[in-house]
Design a binder for these strands. Sequence first.
DNA 1: CAAGAATTTTAGAATCGTTCTAAATAACGA
DNA 2: TCGTTATTTAGAACGATTCTAAAATTCTTG
Lengths: 140, 140
Amino acid sequence: MRQKKVSAANVTVLERLRTAGLRPTRQRLALAKLLFARGHRHVSAEQLFNEAKGHRVDVSLATVYNALHDFTAKGLLREISIDSSSSYFDTNTGNHHHFYFERSGHLEDIDDNQVEIAALPEAPGGAEISRVDVIIRIRA
Amino acid sequence: MRQKKVSAANVTVLERLRTAGLRPTRQRLALAKLLFARGHRHVSAEQLFNEAKGHRVDVSLATVYNALHDFTAKGLLREISIDSSSSYFDTNTGNHHHFYFERSGHLEDIDDNQVEIAALPEAPGGAEISRVDVIIRIRA
DNA sequence: CAAGAATTTTAGAATCGTTCTAAATAACGA
DNA sequence: TCGTTATTTAGAACGATTCTAAAATTCTTG
Ligand SMILES: [Mn+2]
Ligand SMILES: [Mn+2]
Ligand SMILES: [Zn+2]
Ligand SMILES: [Zn+2]
């Protein structure tokens, strides 16, 4: 394979992958760059795959799925299942919630501090809560 | 087809279907009886299909899907997508929330008044909120 | 009750997002 | 560089769901 060009953006992404314990392969670097280049995003595998094609990033669909799952397992992404038709991967891994636009399937972040949950029931049997998701569905 | 036996439970279910504007066919009556017989439930299409088989209710999988969607469209059920692998249909159509047991895939209702949301952001552009879902994920 | 019209059911095919397989390739560490 | 391990890949397979179009049932009207 040809020599990698190591730009500033690449360095950041490369470090992120290494820190996460993921080998910085050409494919992962390219996908991570697309994902983390600017603000937070919610993408499906198919979307990212097409975006990669658009940027002349030669990568298979299987690798896109592998990368998204590997990134998720290492905490670089969070997986969201709202619509049973496909899942989204969220580059925002901090505590936050979502608007879900039912018509378009679009997701929009709601900052954690915009939602105030005054009371929550205890988990049955004192089980551990892994996450509380608040989804505000918008019909129009 | 053989004559229908019209028990008390059947009458209730029959009325429910008629009121909803759904023809009370043998299949819908049997499925509705299974669904609404006792307390609230969260079932997948496959689960209901198997339950029907267990009760000697002769119905095709396509009809189970049709019935679940028709019931949902008429407000007799609510569809829930939490795990992208399959969707659940909830016989509880009132305002309420859920515990989701990640290991088993089980859903458990949380009464609306057990969750107190003190602050919620406004929907962008003053759009109409169709529903607010709170899902408490339990890891263990 | 008898048609006829409208709706529902059904088996099986098709769809589609996702996962799997196993062979080729690339990254790593010594 | 070499051996080991991890990753990528094309394409097959999978599984939940939807579609098709023909048969059956339900409803309406007379
Ligand atoms: Mn997944
Ligand atoms: Mn559905
Ligand atoms: Zn988000
Ligand atoms: Zn419920």
